[in-house]
């Protein structure tokens, strides 16, 4: 929850944090307090590569391994109550889609590790603080 800062300033700070993390903004509807962003990154994991190498050496041919992923983030800001426009709640959700070397989707999942959310909000709090004081 963020207090004493306008909704548009929270959104602006959030967009800044998303840029810090290398996300591009896909969609935004500021009247509803929404920003959607994504980034595409490498998804190769050492464990899978090791298994693939062993299988190839045993004559099992090329095994498909995870290659790239699209990480998605959606962030919603809403006032805590109708009467109080100075207190806002920020809710964020992360998802990812993983493709393998044969371009098949191998994983579609929401990311639910609490540490991820904690770190995101730590970064957002700093940005909101700076935004709040117009530094």
């Amino acid at each position: 929850m963020y207090e004493g800062i306008a909704e548009v300033d929270i959104l602006s700070a959030s967009a800044g944090v998303m840029q810090d993390l290398g996300f591009n903004i896909d969609e935004s509807e500021t009247k509803l307090g929404l920003i959607v962003g994504s980034k595409e990154r490498d998804a190769t994991e050492a464990g899978q590569v090791a298994v693939a190498i062993v299988i190839a050496l045993l004559g099992g041919g090329a095994m498909a391994i995870d290659k790239n992923q699209k990480l998605r983030l959606s962030l919603v800001v809403r006032p805590v109550s109708e009467d109080d426009k100075q207190k806002h709640l920020v809710r964020v959700t992360f998802q990812r889609i993983v493709w393998n070397t044969q371009n098949r989707i191998t994983r579609i999942e929401g990311l639910e590790q609490p540490e991820i959310y904690q770190e995101f909000f730590d970064r957002l709090s700093k940005a909101v603080f700076l935004e709040g004081y117009k530094i």
Binding site: G22, A46, I53, V54, L57
Partner: peptide
């Protein structure tokens, strides 16, 4: 074959082990 396997395995620790970590990853200082 064993040498290849060994070389491949030695080069692995440089790779990521959990690709979901990419979510908050940045390469340079913020």
């Amino acid at each position: 074959m064993l040498l290849f396997l060994l070389a491949a395995l030695i080069s692995l620790p440089g790779c990521q082990t959990n690709s979901s970590k990419q979510l908050l990853q940045t390469s340079e200082s913020q």
